[in-house]
Each structure stands twice: as C-alpha cells, then as structure tokens.
Design a protein around this nucleic acid. Sequence first.
DNA 1: CGATTGGTTAAGCATATGCCTAACTAATCG
DNA 2: CGATTAGTTAGGCATATGCTTAACCAATCG
Lengths: 112, 112
Amino acid sequence: MLNQSPSLDRVFHALADPTRLALVERLGRGAAPVSALAEPLAMSLPAVLQHLNVLEGAGLVRSEKRGRVRTCALQTEALDRLDAWLAAQRSEWEQRLDRLTAYLDALGDADA
Amino acid sequence: MLNQSPSLDRVFHALADPTRLALVERLGRGAAPVSALAEPLAMSLPAVLQHLNVLEGAGLVRSEKRGRVRTCALQTEALDRLDAWLAAQRSEWEQRLDRLTAYLDALGDADA
DNA sequence: CGATTGGTTAAGCATATGCCTAACTAATCG
DNA sequence: CGATTAGTTAGGCATATGCTTAACCAATCG
C-alpha cells in the first residue's frame, strides 16, 4: 500500500529530524543504496532503515529492490507540495496591505 | 535569550504538528491574542501555550505582552529560510542532467 | 478592595520516537 | 553447498511529546 499523498504535517514531520534531513540532502545529489546512505551516519543500519521508512511513508523517498540491493531516490513531488504550501502562506500574508501595521493595531488595541 | 536563527530541522519540527500548522496558517491571516488562537482548537489553554512556545522557539512566531494580553504574529523570516532551503535542494537536483536516468543507472548497475 | 479575565507554571501521565542488539532471510560468491 | 553480503524484523529501553488538571499571578472592572 503506497502512500499517495501524505498530509503536509507528515512531510514536515519526516524532515524534522537532522538525520532524515541529511538523508534528503544526500539523496538530492543522486540515488543510492541503503548501505551507502548509512555509511556516513553514526548509527546502526536498522536505525537508518527506520528513517528511510519514515521518509518513504511521507512520500519524500521512493525505493526499489534489485537482487539484494535497495536503491533509494528522492521523490521531488513531496517537496513540490511543500513549496506550494509555502507559496500559499506567503500570498496570504503578503496580501495584507501592511502586516506590521496590522500587528501594531492588534497590539495597541487596548491602548486607546 | 532569544533564539536568533534556529536550525532548519527545528523549524520543520515546529511545523510537524497539525495543531501548530493550523496556528501558523491562522497567524498568516493576521496577528491575534493567545485566547483567540486557542478558541477554535479542541484543547486546553496550556496546551496551546506549549505549541506557541515551540513555534516561538523555532522563530516562526513572535509575541508581545501588553497589559494582560499576549499578541502573537507570524515571523515570516523563518518561512523564508525554509523557502531558501527548498530552492537550494531543487537547484541541486535540477542540475543533474537527467535524474531519472541517474536513478535507473543506479538501479541497473548490477544488471549488466 | 474583591471578583473576573488572560495567561502562566507545575506536575503527571500515556504514547511516540530514536536508538540499540540479536536473530533471521535472501541473494551472490567460491 | 557453505560463507558472505545487504537488508529486514523483533524486542526493548530511554527520552521526548502532547495533553490534562490544579494552582497561581497580574491586570482590569465594579
């Protein structure tokens, strides 16, 4: 059962760990088998596996097994969705004529 | 001690929770006092406070207290940093002439 | 001043996370 | 076939997270 489009907070969650962030950055430079990904990390293979599973569950990584080697690659669509969210956020608060003014307004409301 | 520029994975961590994500989206539509932020959420005020503290610790939210009211606002710089990271990632993997080919290459390496 | 309102702190609890080691499976290699 | 090699599963443990309730402080309001 492939996870088609995990919720955004799941994507964020997947990126919320330094090891996983490093894995994503590493995979951004090209696909690699599990053991190659694990090599520079100061932790056991099973631990790396778990991280990869989280990334895969969030739709950030896709992997395929050939013989006894599992090759992993970035699935950029997930990052696209992240980008889309950011853009939406930005358009929202950039629409406000003057954010700072609104903020000070809210702050000074009780001030008279 | 204000956290000047929290690490990226801390920002991701802050956004990795549905409640906090909702808070950020809400704040994107304008600054608001704590109780107003808490109102639509099905949880106690202290819980909301904790979430806000996480967001503030990650540099995503700034707040100021006037009288007995704490007003919170989005700190968009943190989102900018996120955007910058995404752009960097993208430029990295878009540089590769043909990602798919590279992936299949890696996959088929043992294939002959 | 006393009551209310808005927020904050503290303590505790259930679950989730990140990691490890040990044991096991599957694909090559000799 | 037997020995590696690559990955996977299982079980367990220590810490982190998200939430709750109870108690508390500070700024208004009457």
